[in-house]
Write a protein that binds this DNA or RNA. Structure first.
Lengths: 237, 237
DNA sequence: CGAGGTGTTGACTGATGTCAATGATGGTGG
DNA sequence: CCACCATCATTGACATCAGTCAACACCTCG
């Protein structure tokens, strides 16, 4: 098993010799409501996890890349949908197989738990963004987040600051809790402020990473303490 | 060990004979940035988990009640703050003790993992709320969420629809990603629509639970599939 | 070349935020 | 016990950011 403490990237041996599956762009591998039988590890490409409400509103929960894991749930059924954003390749194994593997391999259990914590921490990052940040701040953070994802997943980009954006503006909007027009406008605003330039609609060149970091309000994505605030005093309620 | 599959409530024997600690209102038991040495189980009272950004913006991540667990992290340091909203009682045990306990007790490991999943699912619920719902929808959901928390934690309320609100409007606002004035206005609006009435500022009587559910867009909080949407078709991206 | 999907931009609307005044609540000390 | 003060909650008037609706540009695929 390989595990990257910094990023939560994992490769479980449970997936060794597991069957591979190719996905077309837009193909759905997990439907919300289906019985949760399988878990997947991404070999290549980009997948999107989302949840759709009764009235059709959609929230994208995460974009996943190589070595990310998907299919986790405590319940019998998936409560989210997973779809390929680009052509992708995944390996699948059954939940039973994973359970058994975790039961047998003692170290794996702890590693796996840490991985789940990572997912939780990402989710809490998103909560902070959606609850507290403005549109342009969210987009800045999103670009930095993608930059890190590519670094971490070992993508061979010609330039680490030239970020591919395989997903649509609508997908980004649904991730950031905005409308697609607002996403477009925020891209334009970032360009106007000379923090990025846009070679084309599906890539962004980060020309001022520090400026983006300031806007996003983070020190460093790799820090476990991502949002250190002032130490609070006890306050009588 | 007691574990409630529906709610994720847990009581680990790891806490048996663990030292008890009393908390005053407003007292902080976990400071973001401190080394994560301890974990806690709540015996009584209400605790609040939050994160504060560099510029002082605060996001409340959750309100916790009896039998909820707090102190989880994959990293060496806490990246969140935990504070008592009411006078509270907790039992603490060291992370090491918990780790060891989980290593020895085979079943505990799986139970514990399920518990972490519950926390994750709550966090994803919050992501959906913050990203997709309006102010009044978020507040409706919040009231239903509290109602369930009290039910589940076995609180002996004279009326299960008369919900105590021990936290301040500011706390609620920081949880729902709103300003306190907007929270006030949304309370007034719910009252105007006759979905709730307000005996006083720190309790709400839910007079039309179904109406609140419709507004919040959920079928039932206890359902694992909380937000069933229409089954999606593969779409070429 | 045309059609349809996607992205950008503009004009306007509306929901939430901001600022400020007033009203309620709760704790403290006379 | 009550009066006072500080804090918190509510409400109103106004500002602002993001959403809506619509036009147009662009790209891809036939």
């Amino acid at each position: 098993m390989k595990y990257n403490e910094q990023t939560g990237e994992i490769y479980l041996d449970a997936f060794t010799s597991a069957p591979e599956r190719k996905l077309r762009t837009g193909e759905i591998i997990i439907h919300a409501g289906d019985t949760a039988k399988q878990v997947f590890n991404i070999i290549e490409g980009c997948l999107m996890v989302s949840r759709v409400g009764k009235d059709g509103r959609r929230q994208v929960m995460s974009f996943l890349f190589r070595n990310n894991f998907v299919g986790l749930t405590a319940t019998e059924k998936y409560f989210f949908t997973v779809q390929a954003v680009t052509p992708a390749k995944v390996v699948c194994c059954t939940r039973n197989h994973l359970e058994k593997y975790l039961a047998d391999e003692h170290d794996a259990e702890k590693t796996f738990r840490n991985m789940v914590f990572r997912v939780l921490e990402n989710s809490l990052d998103l909560v902070y963004s959606l609850g507290q940040r403005t549109a342009i701040e969210r987009l800045s953070l999103f670009l930095l987040y993608l930059r890190r994802q590519y670094q971490v997943s070992g993508a061979e980009l010609p330039n680490p600051d030239l970020i591919p954006l395989p997903m649509s503006r609508q997908d980004i909007a649904d991730f950031l809790g905005l409308k697609k027009e607002t996403v477009s406008r925020s891209f334009s605003e970032l360009e106007k402020r000379q923090l990025i330039s846009r070679p084309d609609a599906h890539s962004a060149l980060l020309t001022e990473v520090e400026g983006l970091r300031n806007l996003a309000g983070i020190m460093d994505f790799s820090s476990p303490l991502r949002l250190a605030g002032p130490r609070l005093k006890d306050k009588p309620g």
